[in-house]
Design a protein around this nucleic acid. Structure first.
Lengths: 155, 155
DNA sequence: CCTAAATATCTTAGGCGCTAAGATAACTGT
DNA sequence: ACAGTTATCTTAGCGCCTAAGATATTTAGG
């Protein structure tokens, strides 16, 4: 029965998402961070140097929350604050890439290797199938998020 | 280059997990729940009636946290408390399945349909590839969580 | 220039959800 | 029957969030 197989796969993808989250939090704990801080630190690392305000926009947090987030990350030396040249109101966040890498890479490297080995164990055409699944699943979810985030008509 | 393709897929799976979480939270907001409460409500619904203590064990929360969680869910009529027959210390949690379904199904149904359509668009052998990927990825992550959750040797 | 408005960040007050520790109530075994 | 165990709840305190407003700096208009 293809139908049953389909339902089974759908549940599997759900579990996959849940387990990813668990792992992300396990990494955070090991690194001495909260899940929240780990998430946003990864974000900053990816985007590179940015101002506090841009960070707030990028994360969707309020400016107050970002101030607290930066405080916590700064206290742990994961980033430093600098006033922007030319506009002393702006606070530039400079990630301490070295420290972050030193701390996080050992926690992720083996996982990354295992995952890449897993993917490599498929043939090119199989990988393309997996790619097609993920790309389309992503599109579906992003569309759904957009719909869900629109305010209700009656309010 | 297969290597580059592999790296690309790995990033795609990361993004997939992140986006799943975003969608889960968007659903929660729409249902008037926190992401946390939505997560655990789904849990209760899946497992069915259980005691508060079992709920704590199942979720990994402390009993105090579970008391608060139950309070919030009870206030919103998502469940009711009943003393267990034969042991009046135990509190049985009875999910209000009707209300939960009424509230959540409209938020998920279209997504589920779209996802199942997506999966169905693959051939049986392609679906087996996807299944193989997810099963093995899950195993890798669960193993990693276990390793990460072990206390460090030097502490 | 000088000042009003705009902008960028920080601070404060208050809420939610968590843990750890201990209180309360009910059960169990000898 | 009562000491110990078990199940849940309560309390104190912390972390992280929002909303609102304070502070400091820049920009624009007269």
């Amino acid at each position: 029965m293809k139908e049953e197989l389909v339902k089974q796969i759908r549940k599997l993808t759900q579990q996959h998402a849940y387990t990813s989250l668990q792992m992300h939090e396990a990494v955070a704990r090991k690194a001495g961070l909260s899940g929240t801080d780990h998430k946003y630190l990864g974000f900053l690392l990816e985007k590179g140097e940015m101002t506090a305000g841009d960070f707030a926009k990028a994360t969707g947090l309020t400016t107050g929350a970002v101030t607290g987030l930066i405080d916590r990350l700064e206290k742990k030396k994961f980033l430093s604050r600098h006033f922007a040249e030319g506009d002393r109101r702006k606070v530039l966040l400079k990630p301490n890439t070295g420290l972050i890498m030193t701390l996080l890479i050992p926690l992720y490297e083996e996982f990354r290797r295992e995952t890449e080995n897993l993917i490599s164990s498929f043939s090119i055409s199989e990988i393309k199938v997996i790619e097609r699944y993920f790309s389309q699943a992503l599109a579906i979810m992003n569309q759904r998020i957009e719909i869900l985030s629109q305010p209700d008509a009656n309010e």
